[in-house]
Nucleic acid binder design. Structure first.
Lengths: 142, 142
DNA sequence: AATTATAATTGGAATAATTCTTGATTGCGA
DNA sequence: TCGCAATCAAGAATTATTCCAATTATAATT
């Protein structure tokens, strides 16, 4: 019988390769951090987090890893206004609601069965490759 | 009878004040440029354009003017990924389609009668203050 | 009209996120 | 095992934007 090590937080297993990208140790740790920290960390947040496990990693490498992961469609890059880019491993098409009071970023899903083309007057022939929907506001005290 | 000077491109008249903001000469020229150049210029684009009429204006002033206009809801600031901010005087709620091939930015309106809350599963109690919808893609050769 | 106060502008320096460069290291196939 | 290509590290460079201090313009008051 295989032990589940229930006293340790479940460690996310990262394969050797994801969609054609060789997962080096650095890329694994960057990816693992994103899978664990679901709060849309910045490159610097990831850097500080990954240093616990790879003390010699450089910020440039974190940027490189994040870029490689984004290029291969493994994670998404999210921008709010001109703030630092943030990264998330939620690949389902979704938007982000940025709570201006707390700073928390909530993923916002589409209602089922809705497509953007139903809602927007797109230019004729437009082929959408990427969508970014960001909302800013506050959450009413309930 | 008043001449219409039909050989000159119609000059956009800018009032002394817009929604509580005193329109200084610099702000007028920045605003006029945005009204004429509907292609979502960057601060630097505006700067170069305005210099024709106000040779001594500084880039910092263009940034100041743009910020003041944005704060007073007279224009909108638009961001694509982490590129330079762009500015547009189209105040109706709309998104932007960024043609990755030509670089052209198209305004994209909502279909009539649609509201975002119809489409997205917003967090309960969310009060939206600002929406940014940006699409990137190409236009199929028709 | 002169004076005072307030706001705006300028030019340059400062900042911060990101990218680039270069040299070292690693991993992998022949 | 050797050599090649990919990756990494460290720090320099870049770029958009903001900040700051000094000047100028505008408005308000006498």
């Amino acid at each position: 019988m295989v032990s589940k090590t229930p006293d340790q937080p479940a460690e996310i297993e990262v394969p050797e390769e994801i969609s054609g990208l060789r997962m080096t140790r650095q890329r694994q740790e960057v990816y693992r951090t994103l899978m664990q920290e679901r709060n849309h960390p910045t490159a610097n947040d990831v850097f500080m987090r990954v240093k616990d496990r790879l003390p010699n990693i450089s910020l440039a490498t974190v940027y490189n890893c994040l870029e490689a992961l984004v290029q291969h469609g493994i994670i998404r890059q999210v921008n709010f206004e001109r703030e630092s880019s943030r990264y998330c491993p939620n690949l389902s098409e979704h938007g982000h609601f940025h709570d201006a009071v707390t700073g928390v970023i909530h993923d916002v899903d589409f209602k089922p069965g809705i497509s953007l083309a139903d809602v927007l007057n797109l230019p004729p022939g437009a082929l959408i490759e990427d969508v970014e929907i960001t909302l800013r506001g506050k959450i009413a005290i309930s």
